Amino acid sequence: MPYTTQPNTAIVVHGAGDLRVEELPAPTPRADEAVVTVAFGGICGSDLHYWRSGAVGESILREPMVLGHEVVGNVTVAAADGSGPAVGTAVAVHPATTGTAPGRYPANRPNLAPGTTYLGSAALLPHTQGGFARHTALPTRMLRPLPAGLCLRDAALAEPAAVALHGVHRAGDVAGKRALVIGAGPIGALAAAALRRAGAAEIVAVDLQELPLRIALEVGADRTIHAADVAAIDAVEADVVIESSGNRHGLASAVRGAARGGTVVMVGLLPTGPQPALVSLAITKELDLRGSFRFVDEITEVLAALADGSLAVGPVATHEFAVDDALEAFVTAADSSVSGKVLVRF
């Protein structure tokens, strides 16, 4: 049955607390777009923020928006201009479109380009619609064919794993170093996996919940610490810290747990506006504090690592729901005591 006659079920947020499963019109691709029939979508923290509060930082929901940027599927209709993969190709999606707004940034870091858009983002108006739909038209430059032997369900972790890997890359060479991961949710767990692959000598994970700590151990951490154990965190003295909790308490733990002269990479996005921070301690320790925002093209490296087994991600995905059960999926994803990465099956 052609995709144009199939239900195009999508997950649409209309406002804070207003999440709906709707039928959308079939997509009409442009010449450089392929139609992808989505197999799985991973629920990200940003999706949860749009659902619960109607905003992510300064990106405020002003119109209904299809959520989702962690999507994988199969090409149903190839691009009319001949670019991109053929019909039937299994693909992951790089959800960014590099911006062209005025402003300076390093040419080799297009993730920092002003005006860059991301699937399922309310940063601009009209919003950039996301990929949580059974059929979606996407520019072929976003599509990454899966390596042989890599299944779509495992590839559904590629986008968040790329975010984690970018954070590890921002830390520099971690081989032989002691690493501390603050916040062992999906991004933190994937960071632990990336640190293990990169040759870190010891990896310590910190979280408030037992489930994420257990997952971190399964994918690469050597030991864990409960976030309330301040003395134990201070005693780590890590060469490299990946802060993935996205809150000021986690950033304070990162500064305390870093060794003198160490590097703290801030992957977790803190709320907009001023935040209290242990700046004096960061100064006296001569810490390098580095931001990490999304990723460049690490998704290609991730897909290869998933295919050859050098990056362990399986335990991170703890739940899978049918698209018709989207609300239950979001409720589950919002509770880190019971879930890791939650996948929606389209």
Rank of each mutant, 00 (worst) to 15 (best):
G103C: 03
R104D: 15
R104I: 01
R104V: 06
Y105I: 04
Y105N: 05
P106I: 00
P106W: 11
P106M: 08
A107Q: 12
N108M: 11
R109T: 13
P110W: 02
L112V: 00
A113P: 07
A113F: 11
A113T: 12
P114H: 11
P114E: 05
G115D: 07
G115C: 01
G115R: 11
T116S: 11
T117W: 12
T117R: 10
T117F: 07
Y118H: 03
Y118W: 15
L119Q: 09
G120E: 08
G120N: 08
S121C: 07
S121E: 05
A122F: 04
A122Y: 09
A122H: 06
A122I: 00
A123G: 05
A123S: 09
A123R: 14
A123F: 12
A123E: 14
L125R: 10
P126A: 01
P126Y: 09
P126F: 04
H127M: 03
H127I: 00
Q129H: 04
Q129R: 01
G131Q: 08
A133T: 14
A133D: 07
A133M: 12
A133K: 08
R134S: 11
R134Y: 01
R134L: 10
H135F: 15
T136I: 15
T136M: 12
T136S: 07
A137L: 13
A137H: 01
A137E: 02
A137W: 13
L138I: 14
L138G: 10
P139Y: 14
T140N: 05
T140Q: 08
T140I: 12
M142V: 10
R144N: 13
P145G: 04
P145E: 02
P145C: 04
P147H: 12
G149E: 05
L150W: 13
L150T: 12
L150D: 04
C151I: 14
C151D: 15
C151W: 11
R153H: 13
D154S: 15
D154Q: 14
D154P: 00
A156Q: 09
L157F: 10
A158E: 09
A158I: 06
E159W: 11
A162L: 00
A162M: 02
A162C: 01
V163R: 02
V163I: 11
V163M: 08
V163E: 02
A164C: 02
A164G: 01
A164L: 03
L165F: 08
H166G: 06
H166S: 10
G167D: 02
G167H: 10
